[in-house]
Design a protein around this nucleic acid. Structure first.
Length: 317
DNA sequence: AATTACGTCAACCGCTACTAT
DNA sequence: GATAGTAGCGGTTGACGTAAT
């Protein structure tokens, strides 16, 4: 039972393919077409196992393979499909013409996965999780992040409270080292706010969108005043203008950004996109402009349908 | 200039599913 | 139904290139 011996017992060649081998394989397939991989190597004069030939052809030599960097659109498609299909790389590849499952898998593991982790998003469940957030980058990249503490508070119902507590502790120590410290008391205030806040129970319906869940989970936000020297929490229905105020961005600027489409993913007026929550570093702070843009737009990719029988939502919390 | 650490990706390995006998 | 052969898939590895020290 089981597999027959392949390369191992036949002392066939392994490792990188030479141009000569590529030429032989390509020529053979041009003449006879792909398939029958078991017998192909012998006929083509290759000292490789059929499996190795198939892989070389499907992942590299196939003429319809698209080379080069993944486009924004491709990346967006991958993330969206992954949120539905999981690690079904071949299924994802089937929807991306010219890309192989291996290529997509590699790209996911080396680029997208890391970026999601850095943004505090679980790459397996596509759920926001603060315990995955790269807190060091959060703390090292100047004040814009601190201006978004209110957003972090809004997240508190979604994340492990202990993780949030750690974040606040780190923020506290960071601020204490800041000569121009004017936010010294934030962590205590915020912690108090967290303790005073009880999130309503959430009932997830089949096919409910992520937006719906978020809005149901967090139907409120903090008013600006509570974080800018105000005492105690103040709740209000959030508007875009509210949001822009405590992000330190003018309403007009924000609308202008929203008109640029990628940022136009607010939840009933609440900009819950992760670029606003985490405030991705400016291009001149770290990384390339393109990386910055990709990180920004990745935050918009978490509007997915909850599939029927969606049973891992517990992990979301 | 040399060494080390890290990132990328082609290729391999082991498993499952499917098909033929 | 049992067994063997084959194709395909997803996880992992390791060689190579580049950046950092």
């Amino acid at each position: 039972m089981g597999r027959s011996p392949c390369c191992d017992k036949n002392a066939l060649k392994k490792g990188p393919w030479t141009p000569e081998e590529d030429a032989k394989l390509t020529h053979h397939i041009q003449m006879h077409g792909p398939g029958n991989w078991r017998t192909l190597p012998k006929i083509a004069g290759l000292e490789r196992c059929g499996k190795s030939c198939r892989l070389r052809w499907t992942n590299y030599l196939r003429p319809d393979i698209k080379r080069g960097r993944f486009s924004f659109e491709e990346e967006e498609t991958i993330i969206q499909l992954h949120s539905v299909l999981g690690n079904k790389w071949s299924a994802i590849a089937a929807r991306l013409p010219g890309r192989t499952d291996n290529e997509i898998k590699n790209y996911w593991n080396t680029h997208i996965r890391k970026r999601l982790l850095k943004m505090g998003i679980d790459p397996v469940t596509h759920s926001p999780r603060l315990d995955l957030l790269d807190l060091s980058s959060l703390l090292m990249n100047n004040s814009p992040h601190l201006n978004n503490l209110s957003n972090l508070i809004r997240l508190q119902t979604l994340v492990n409270p202990e993780a949030l507590r750690v974040a606040l502790t780190l923020l506290s120590s960071h601020e204490q080292n800041d000569q121009n410290n004017h936010l010294l008391n934030y962590p205590n205030i915020l912690e108090q706010q967290i303790q005073n806040t009880v999130a309503p129970p959430v009932v997830i319906q089949p096919n409910q969108t992520f937006d719906n869940i978020i809005n149901q989970q967090i139907p409120w936000t903090f008013a600006t005043s509570s974080l800018q020297g105000g005492v105690g929490p103040t709740y209000s229905n959030s508007t875009s203008d509210d949001q822009s105020l405590y992000n330190g961005v003018s309403s007009d600027q924000m609308k202008a950004d929203n008109n640029n489409s990628r940022f136009d993913q607010s939840f009933n007026g609440m900009d819950f996109s992760f670029d606003s929550v985490i405030s991705t570093p400016e291009p001149n702070m770290s990384g390339s402009t393109e990386e910055y843009e990709r990180e920004s737009f990745c935050s918009d990719l978490f509007k997915f349908e909850i599939p029927e029988g969606f049973d891992y939502f517990d992990d979301f919390m």
